[in-house]
Amino acid sequence: MSNAPLLEVRGLNAWYGESHVLHGVDLDIREGETVTLLGRNGAGKTTTLRAIMGILRRREGVIRLRDKDLLALPLHKVAQAGIGYVPEERGIFASLTVAENLTLPPNVSDGGMSIDEIYTLFPNLHERRSSQGTKLSGGEQQMLAIARILRTGAKIILLDEPTEGLAPVIVQRIGDVLIALKERGMTILLVEQNFRFARKVADRFYLMEDGRMVNSFPGHELDARMDELHEVLGV
């Protein structure tokens, strides 16, 4: 693990149409780290992911992957630079089979998992590989959304609320997958409302409020800061 950040965000501002939604966001992720963004609904967590990815186009500031400036790149070049995106709504395609969904994203580097490895990690997907993508259960769709990015060899995964709306046993399962990914040295930027889940996987936390970063602290301080967090998040 080197000390120079893999992904570096400096003074990121972003706009939805006329409304200014991110105000000077700073963020660092080192290689192999799992970093979690916390914040209330509407604090700007998803927006931060979309702005980094370049889905939200009206941005100012600095977004660098290693030494590569991402801000000027068109959306598909950002993905090709090595950023994988798992959207909140999962984005499983109804007109594609599970296998087609899985192989849809083009490879961006050689380091990705093979199809066999993925099917070993997610046996359900193998079983249902020729079903229509959206016929899967919510949990399976989430697995598929993560799995298809693992295949591409992306250096860093932006993961938006992977546990939202899922049963505890599935959440447990997704937690196991993320831990397995960490052990493989994957870098993850996670947006999560579920503390208990995030605590298991996160090395560091960032706290967002009204489109600004208001605090950051290492994972092991989470318990000590619980009261403060409850106040900010209003949980």
Binding site: M53, I55, L75, H76, Y85, T152
Partner: peptide, 10 residues
């Protein structure tokens, strides 16, 4: 948009 976010030159 999502397909382009996966790296396909849409």
């Amino acid at each position: 948009t999502l397909v382009q976010a996966f790296g396909v030159n849409v």
